[in-house]
């Protein structure tokens, strides 16, 4: 509660001084355990702000809403460490000017929520490096352990079963801060590169394209997994790809706003004779 009250005051000060034109945060949702994104432009709206451990949604995707940052004014946003990594990637991929973002950082352990020191992306580089070196130890998911024991055929069957539920609502794409493409490959229909049908093949095509596209870019904020209305464990795919990229390239996505994208950069002394 103390963190929330302090941040309400901070938001009011930021708006009153004109340092930001808007702050993106959370407000109560339709049931006690739900939170909604909130766009704060006035002091009254700041009174609706809620900040507690149930504020899970990574809000950074709203920053690339068409026109929001084009007036060069600053916008404040509540972000967990994963959200800070997201905006670093968006900056590295030239989707936003990091100078325009005022970070109101927070994190939580259990039900306790605490503020993170700093306002600019650069202030958090130490924290992010620490997270890279010492990832938070969470108990391994039983499902992940089950999958890791499977052979290739069993894994294929498992995912075929999971993807069979996909209805191609694209909630995973829309909820993802990294899915900012003006026209997604699946919406490019002249020619239609990817089947639009949500049959087995179409669902595989979509989910595998997404997995590769997010490799080295996903920060495991969990937005896609929480958004999926048919409960496909999408987090497991992205977690696995992040591990591959970390092991293979020592790349931890979103460390800084100037980090080179792992699958979109080229070095002349690269030992590989090809690029993906």
């Amino acid at each position: 509660m103390i963190t929330q009250e302090k941040y309400r005051t901070t938001v009011k000060e930021l708006l009153a001084s004109g340092s930001v034109k808007m702050v993106i945060g959370y407000k109560p949702g339709s049931t006690p355990d739900r939170r909604r994104p909130l766009f704060i432009r006035t002091s009254e709206e700041a009174d609706q702000l809620v900040l507690d451990s149930t504020c899970m949604t990574n809000l950074s995707g709203y920053l690339v809403t068409e026109g929001l940052l084009s007036d060069e004014k600053r916008v404040g946003i509540f972000l967990r460490p994963e959200g800070i990594r997201s905006i670093n990637i968006l900056a590295a991929e030239y989707q936003l000017n990091i100078e325009q973002i005022v970070i109101l950082g927070f994190d939580s352990t259990g039900r306790d929520v605490r503020p993170l020191e700093g306002r600019n992306a650069g202030d958090f580089s130490g924290l992010l490096s620490e997270i890279k070196e010492k990832p938070v130890q969470t108990s391994k998911e039983p499902l992940l352990e089950r999958i890791e024991k499977m052979n290739a055929q069993e894994r294929f069957d498992f995912w075929q079963e999971e993807f069979s539920r996909c209805i191609k609502c694209y909630a995973c794409r829309q909820a993802c801060p990294m899915c900012y493409c003006r026209r997604c490959i699946v919406d490019s229909n002249q020619p239609q590169w990817i089947n639009t049908s949500s049959h087995t093949l179409g669902n595989f095509e979509w989910n595998i394209v997404r997995a590769f596209h997010l490799s080295g870019r996903c920060v495991q904020c969990g937005n896609c997994d929480r958004a999926c209305p048919v409960n496909i464990p999408l987090r497991l795919i992205n977690q696995r790809m992040a591990t591959e990229v970390l092991d293979g390239f020592d790349h931890f996505a979103g460390l800084s706003p100037t980090q080179e994208p792992v699958l979109a950069s080229f070095k002349k002394d690269d030992t590989e004779t090809f690029i993906l």
Partner: peptide, 13 residues
């Protein structure tokens, strides 16, 4: 609709 992310979850369900 400011916070609508434009997925089809509502329409498909």
């Amino acid at each position: 609709s400011m916070r609508c992310i434009g997925c089809a979850s509502c329409t498909y369900l």
